[in-house]
Amino acid sequence: MDFTRRETLALGAGAALMTVLPFRANAAVDDLIAEFTGGAAVADGGVDLTAPEIAENGNTVPITVGAEGATAIMVLAAGNPTPPVATFKFGPMAGAQSASTRIRLAGTQDVVAVAQLADGSFARASKTVKVTIGGCGG
């Protein structure tokens, strides 16, 4: 199989794009986390994130997030076209700093939860969810 110079260039450009795209998706998540934390360091662990290992239907994936004494928890779906999912803020009448909801996932990806703890520090947890049918129409 012979490639002309034009085809080779197109292939090269395609390959470069392939490597750049996933990187950009992660950068968006990092940017959102930085915006949430104001640039503060984020520790691993200390946040409970419950999500199914395998979700048959990406349109409704049940998740639960919680963190002892947290004031706010942000949930992100790293592989969605728009990563933000929800931000929970807990008030003085909250009985426990945890909440459950159902989310949409476009495909197999990591779900990330970042919590602002009572002392002002930040913690994160992430979980990979395998999705059989994506939930973004298309």
Binding site: T60, V85, A86, F88, K89, F90, G91, M93, A94, G135
Partner: peptide
């Protein structure tokens, strides 16, 4: 008194 305040994005299910 506030219990919970949630910001929702399009990734919340129907």
């Amino acid at each position: 008194q506030n219990v919970i305040d949630v910001d929702l994005a399009p990734a919340i299910s129907t």
